[in-house]
Nucleic acid binder design. Structure first.
Lengths: 397, 397
DNA sequence: GATAATACTTTCAGTCTGAACGGAAATAGA
DNA sequence: TCTATTTCCGTTCAGACTGAAAGTATTATC
């Protein structure tokens, strides 16, 4: 009585195609997915009935013959919210189902709050930012500055915002939002953002390091996040490769850099300033950091053979002038596989936008998109021509 | 007119079930695969017609009712050959489609031969070892001591047997065998062997290091080999983490160990002897190697969060007593994720048996097994109760 | 307005599945 | 030995689904 598998699979294929290619004609879907026109027509009709797709009246070409009607995802049918909770700032982006950003917002993190209060504050902030779209809110994804274990979402290793390790934080957040909340490491989300919209959008395999107060890492293999069991994949800062077996994270992260500068009698407040300074006494510090970074980059290349390594986080700005040289040295060490070393294209918003992507994946999954198709959605140019900073003005005060 | 996809998928499911579970009744297949008895019956009938399966007349249980007939793979329908070409020895195992080893053989590598001659010698050796089964030879898989790039099978990085880098080697081998030949890095195959039959058989994610003349590595994620683009994934020996940015491979591999011992005025011929010696002057050498190994193990844990790290190759025997301590130190460095550090269970035959697995995968693929199902075949206990050393006596002299 | 081109829909034959039924084979017990 | 029961397996049948082909709708060109 049942043989529903093919229908579901084809439905997912069609939906994925619309999501990745934007407004598209039925004929084009058929040609590019190797489905027959009849099947496409039937499935599109069903999706239209369900309200998942809408017909756009666009008159795209001026050729002879009947005008093709294009269908697109019913973008306004739902919204998602991506949140990047950092030690100093909380950034969030609300987007519709077509991944078009609607509102963007940045607020200082009230780091002094305890877990329940922080959860409540964040939930209220999200509700407020989502505003009128609250009833259409499909999913919220929150990036946290710590390791998130996949199977039970336990948070660990969050020295910059230890409150979030408390399971209460998540529980209360979900309760007060009355929506499922996705959680992951902020570096993973940052990579997801760059992978979809930024520096890694053409890479199959990519690694991202966020260098700031700590050293975070995200890894994507075949365009899918590789999380590992406890969410610490790629954190090569733990390598005991410094002198006397010290960990590299101690060398490369903000506090480590400041400490070394201080040892030289040069107190700085901001690690990025150390790199901007031209004081010749700082040369060994910079070299030291660079050597550590080189080990980490080599480890990433050898571990995953990524096409791109993206550097993000506060200190990465300061490293920008050195990227070319770093890439060169990397190629000397591992000549076989070259990886481009680039800085994050999405800047501070990588994390929030990656969270949006994660939330969209959940939302799309509920709409019937099969797991393998998720690796290709949403379309990379959803952000094109969209000034995110302008959107932040739209935020409710 | 066509809707063949479900049939192919179900066929693959049934075939995979028989391959993983050995002789099994139709009813059991239906229950464990969630296919209806009708479907199972039809597909089994088809597979019997094709000669891929055979009915075994076993009367397994003594319950009431009609006796269930069990079906199994037609093991004798084809054979595969797995070859591990090392710098000093060539090992090969011939097995049938049920992964039961038929012949095992070890021969010194004629390292002085040039590429064409080596290819011819190896082809002849394989033909001879396969013997009467030659006409049923489905696939040959050869592990080489070098990096193999996936898309064009170019071999590089083979200092211990540079001939195999010559593309002629492969071309002639295939020509003379008149069979498709699979090629991969020997460490990858060793891991495949351990993953299927040995120390990693219960692990989803595992890493293997073969420590010998060089430092080789293989990585499996979710029970599938992770190769990367140029086949050097996991080779953390390249990390410039030694003093003055020297690579770890120089420290940990055989020649490096011998050189350091020689610096102390203690000439050895065999690196394993360095570890066996109780000379107190060697303590710093051992510590030095251990520290390098620890960095490599840490890198592996951080990179992939494996459940098991398998150590193989000549030197690993000598390290066996230290494995417990090494594991302990590893857990101190990366407490969140513990990986068991074990030595290879299959010993010298990991590589050849892994090559058998790879060859079987190709053979199974030709029989219609879908790619995701390959990760679970053949069944892990195909080797149980089979003395491989006894088989080597069967080899044609 | 006829014609041609293109886009979509409907019809139809054919594949495949699961549920239900029925025959076959084996044990248990009278 | 004969029958009831249990279990295994094959067959039948309605339903889901697909692609090819034929049909319909819509548009530009002549």
């Amino acid at each position: 009585m049942e043989a529903r598998a093919p229908r579901r699979a084809n439905r997912s294929t069609v939906l994925a195609h619309v999501l990745t290619h934007g407004p598209v004609t039925r004929t084009a879907i058929g040609q590019e997915t190797d489905l027959s026109p009849a099947t496409v027509s039937r499935i599109v009709e069903q999706l239209l009935d369900e309200g998942l797709l809408v017909e756009t009246d666009g008159t795209p070409t001026a050729t002879r013959g009947r005008r093709a009607t294009r269908v697109a995802i019913a973008a306004g049918r739902g919204v998602v919210c991506g949140v990047d909770v950092g030690g100093s700032n909380v950034r969030m982006v609300v987007a519709d189902l077509a991944a078009t950003p609607l509102v963007s917002r940045t607020v200082p993190t009230p780091a002094q709050y305890d877990a329940p209060r922080l959860a409540q504050w964040l939930a209220d902030l999200i509700r407020q930012t989502v505003g009128d779209n609250l009833d259409r809110l499909d999913c919220v994804a929150v990036g946290l500055p710590g390791a998130v274990r996949e199977h039970d979402r336990a948070v660990s290793n969050a020295p910059n915002l230890p409150q979030v390790e408390d399971p209460e934080f998540l529980r209360l957040l979900e309760k007060r939002l009355s929506t499922g909340v996705e959680v992951d490491n902020d570096s993973n989300y940052a990579l997801l953002g760059e992978l979809r919209f930024g520096a890694a959008r053409n890479a199959q395999t990519a690694v991202m390091f966020t260098i700031g107060a700590g050293l975070g890492a995200g890894v994507a293999i075949d365009r899918r996040l590789f999380r590992g069991r406890s969410g610490m994949v790629g954190e090569f800062g733990h390598l005991p490769a410094g002198p006397l077996g010290t960990s590299l994270e101690q060398i490369i992260s903000g506090p480590g850099i400041l400490a070394r500068a201080r040892d030289l009698g040069l107190p700085f407040d901001n690690p990025a300033d150390v790199f901007r300074s031209t004081d010749s006494r700082l040369v060994p510090v910079k070299q030291y950091v660079e050597q550590a970074l080189l080990i980490i980059l080599t480890a990433a290349v050898v571990a995953y053979e990524p096409e791109v390594i993206v550097l993000g986080g506060g200190i990465s700005h300061a490293l920008k002038p050195d990227l070319g040289r770093l890439g060169g040295r990397l190629r000397e060490i591992v000549p076989v596989t070259a990886a481009a070393v680039q800085s994050a294209e999405l800047g501070d918003l990588s994390g929030a936008l990656g969270a949006v992507v994660a939330a969209l994946h959940t939302a799309y999954g509920r709409l019937g998109l099969a797991e393998p198709d998720l690796a290709h959605v949403p379309q990379p140019d959803a952000l094109a021509g969209c000034d995110l900073h302008a959107l932040s003005a739209n935020a409710i005060a």
